[in-house]
Design a protein around this nucleic acid. Sequence first.
DNA 1: TATCTAGTTTATAATAATTCTAAACTAGAA
DNA 2: TTCTAGTTTAGAATTATTATAAACTAGATA
Lengths: 139, 139
Amino acid sequence: MIISGNLKTYVQKLRSSNLRPTKQRLKICQFLFNREKTFHFTVETLNKKINKNIGTKVSLATIYNTVEAFTSAGYLKEILTSKNKSYYDTNTKSHHHFYDEGSKELTDIHYSQIKLSKVPIPPKGKKIKNLEVVIRIQK
Amino acid sequence: MIISGNLKTYVQKLRSSNLRPTKQRLKICQFLFNREKTFHFTVETLNKKINKNIGTKVSLATIYNTVEAFTSAGYLKEILTSKNKSYYDTNTKSHHHFYDEGSKELTDIHYSQIKLSKVPIPPKGKKIKNLEVVIRIQK
DNA sequence: TATCTAGTTTATAATAATTCTAAACTAGAA
DNA sequence: TTCTAGTTTAGAATTATTATAAACTAGATA
Ligand SMILES: [Mn+2]
Ligand SMILES: [Mn+2]
Ligand SMILES: [Zn+2]
Ligand SMILES: [Zn+2]
């Protein structure tokens, strides 16, 4: 398999996620991180695209495991949209989304584009884990 | 089965949801709407509570169907929390929520308790369907 | 470089929530 | 009372995801 000049950064991402660099994982890294722009995906679409082109075959289980490991290591972010399918984002900065209920696609909203000027205090003993907004849109 | 004095309102809710008033559906109505305060539930908890006490047995399929019909008729609201389970709310007014990731419970936040002073314009041809915020909290 | 082993991959099974099916039942119009 | 479209139900099917366990491999060590 041909791995771009970013090999080192992939190995570093994998090692810091407690994963050995294998050819399956490097292929996933290349697909996820060898790009100009961040993007959103589901495991289903990732699996199809990873295994469409030639080269190393990657099982669905490995895709699930790697995505999960990258998510807990902070290299991917999980976005809650519909109840039936997990969406992930290679943009790990805090930001908001439009979710189009027709096309089922996510679009980034820069963090500064939504201003919450009033937010309630959480119940005592609890703290806010995350305050990212998903705005549902439709035709 | 004993149905409270709200029978007429249940029949009206059912009829306007294009459902005939059956004893199963009236039992569900009574459990959902014969209360002082609104509340949040999942199909799993609803099924357990409906079928715990004596009286008409209601199948899981009927519970799913009735909850779905009430949701599209606007008598229940679906709240998106986790990706694995649907949550519903008998409070159908527009409002926000805390979602406790530990206890997996929802708490209402009155609509006026969150102020969005800046909201982006949706992509052309699309409109905002709903802008209710779920704030994830934890210990 | 050969050996060894903990970590990895994979096909497949299991699980969990939800939806579908089709046969038996029933509300309510006639 | 009869009739039929709508309803209920048990169980099967579906879908996303997680678990299992046997075959493989990275990479540390001899
Ligand atoms: Mn579902
Ligand atoms: Mn799931
Ligand atoms: Zn994003
Ligand atoms: Zn609520």
